[in-house]
Amino acid sequence: MSEAGSPAGMMPSTPVVGTGRRHLNPSLFVGGGLVLLVVAMALVSYVWTPYPPMRVLGTEAYQTPNADFWLGTDRFRRDVLSQILVGARTTLYVGVVAVGVAALVGVPLGILAAMSGGWLGQTVMRANDILLAFPALLLAIMFAALYGGSTQVAMIAIGIATIPSFARITRSGALGVMSTDYVTAARAAGHGPFAIALRHVLPNVAGLVIVQASVAFAIAILAEAALAYLGLGTPTGQASWGRMLYEAQSTLRSAPHLVLVPGAAIALAVLGFNLFGDGLRDYLDPKLERR
């Protein structure tokens, strides 16, 4: 560390512009790896799948994994691996849209509730509580009944059901930020409420929101799979891991690999996003020792 790089002077041991690397914890590493794997599967499916995923092939049904069909074939004589790869797209698509809907609505609501207080804040949070009373699945079933079962309806319903968790976590974080000296200092410097929300509150709750997004992503994946399994989400003819489970349930005993493969894919994706969220929380938490 040269003297020029240290305007600190009084604290020569710490560089002023940090180059210190933060510790990568194992859950961030493993979770990140699994998330990347799912993303990679989705990306690969655009350029290459062993067979057209939804095509009925001139081969036998219920094949166990072999050299031609790495993960076997299903009862419609379709390739399982190809479906898993394309299904990763659906999974990510649902997660991104559901979390996007939830965050885009929930985060501003949470900040609004924290900053306005009074009757407006109370109204927002009570409306939030009402929404929270509906389980995501129930809301999605209701939507499916109203608008028909499709991936789009499912993910928007999941997104709406996830709004309260974003609003709550943002509000609690924003309340903490609002009571800090730098927000008082920003007010003392003449910043208006909108500028304070955008420049001071939002960046300082971003960590919380990112962690919440990762966890909500896992929940959304699970919810989509559950809906597809119930026959309410992604319709037949489109690849979806939940859909694959649904179609395999009658052959659970005779062809267990048809349940195990998509089941494992769902489990790993959910585990990945959960671990990633946990690891991110530790990584972003300023209270933890940085090494």
Binding site: T180, Y182, T184, A185, A186, A188, R199, H200, N204, P286
Partner: peptide, 11 residues
């Protein structure tokens, strides 16, 4: 303000 450690936006 009194507390310089918290009077600046950390981000």
């Amino acid at each position: 303000f009194q507390e310089p450690m918290t009077a600046l936006n950390p981000t």
